[in-house]
């Protein structure tokens, strides 16, 4: 078939798709802004201060400051991932929004690219709100923590791309529960989020460092909020950048295979 040669057709059209999602988001902003505001407060109180009473310090860092950057990283992951799985699937399958868009000069490549950029934007919006709360609690360093803002877009784009791959191959909306529980939940727990990776068995440590995107994202956010930039920081940025580009194009390709028949 003509589609076997893959050249994405990307123009500024992708921004129009992005803008559509942006407009919908701000139509319902009252419900959209509450979770990123409440969530870190709950976690900081329950885990940071509550559990932190018993943990004390990790590597010389108060426990609440240890988990604060992980909360931002998790929010980057969740907002892009759930946007580009369940929400994108609803737009694609139930609302037929993609069909409406490709009946215009927009190509499917641009529709998917717009969805990915929007997923990344959601990560940016949510982590910004969360960062503001963390700054208010005084548990992150300034000014380096502010670099989380541009970084959240990059990392968000990575999770958006991964999510869109699942959306492209899922048989139905219920099957999206599998990546949520088998991929997102383990990452939430085993990416150096609530305890350092060193305590895990050697094999798991290597797996977490090599294959779990959230590990890399937590490394970056923690380096920034603790003002502690090690060479490993650069490795993480590189790892994230390469995979972001890869998943961006792979997800567009898989979506075309699904929808252009």
């Amino acid at each position: 078939m003509a589609q076997s040669v893959y050249i994405p057709r990307l123009t500024r059209g992708a921004l129009k798709v992005w803008r559509r999602n942006w407009d919908v988001f701000f139509k319902t902003y009252q419900v959209n802004f509450l979770p990123p505001f409440i969530e870190p407060i709950l976690y900081l109180l329950a885990i940071g201060f509550g559990l932190g009473m018993f943990v004390g310090e990790i590597d010389g860092v108060p426990y609440v400051e240890f988990i604060a950057p992980a909360l931002v990283a998790i929010s980057i992951m969740n907002s892009a991932f759930f946007e580009c799985t369940y929400s994108s699937f609803v737009r694609m399958y139930y609302q037929k929004t993609f069909d409406a868009m490709i009946a215009t000069p927009l190509a499917l490549d641009e529709v998917i690219a717009g969805e990915l950029l929007w997923g990344a934007t959601r990560s940016f919006i949510y982590s910004s709100v969360m960062l503001a709360v963390l700054i208010a609690f005084g548990v992150v360093d300034l000014p380096l923590s502010l670099f989380i803002l541009p970084f959240s877009f990059l990392a968000g784009l990575l999770f958006a791309g991964i999510a869109m791959c699942f959306t492209a191959i899922t048989p139905g909306i219920d099957a999206l529960n599998y990546p949520s529980f088998l991929f997102i939940t383990p990452m939430f727990l085993f990416s150096g989020t609530f305890f350092p990776l060193d305590v895990l068995p050697g094999g798991l440590q290597i797996f977490a460092r090599g294959f779990l995107p959230l590990t890399q994202v937590v490394t970056v956010t923690r380096s920034l909020t603790l003002s502690d930039l090690s060479p490993y920081f650069l490795y993480s940025i590189g790892w994230i950048s390469v995979l972001t580009v890869l998943f961006f194009f792979v997800s567009i390709h898989l979506m075309k295979r699904r929808l252009i028949v």
Partner: peptide
């Protein structure tokens, strides 16, 4: 396949951007 979150006017406006 209209955008259910939008009004009639907004639906057409968003579409005109495409």
């Amino acid at each position: 396949n209209l955008d259910t979150e939008f009004t009639c006017f907004e639906n057409l406006l968003v579409y005109s951007r495409y």
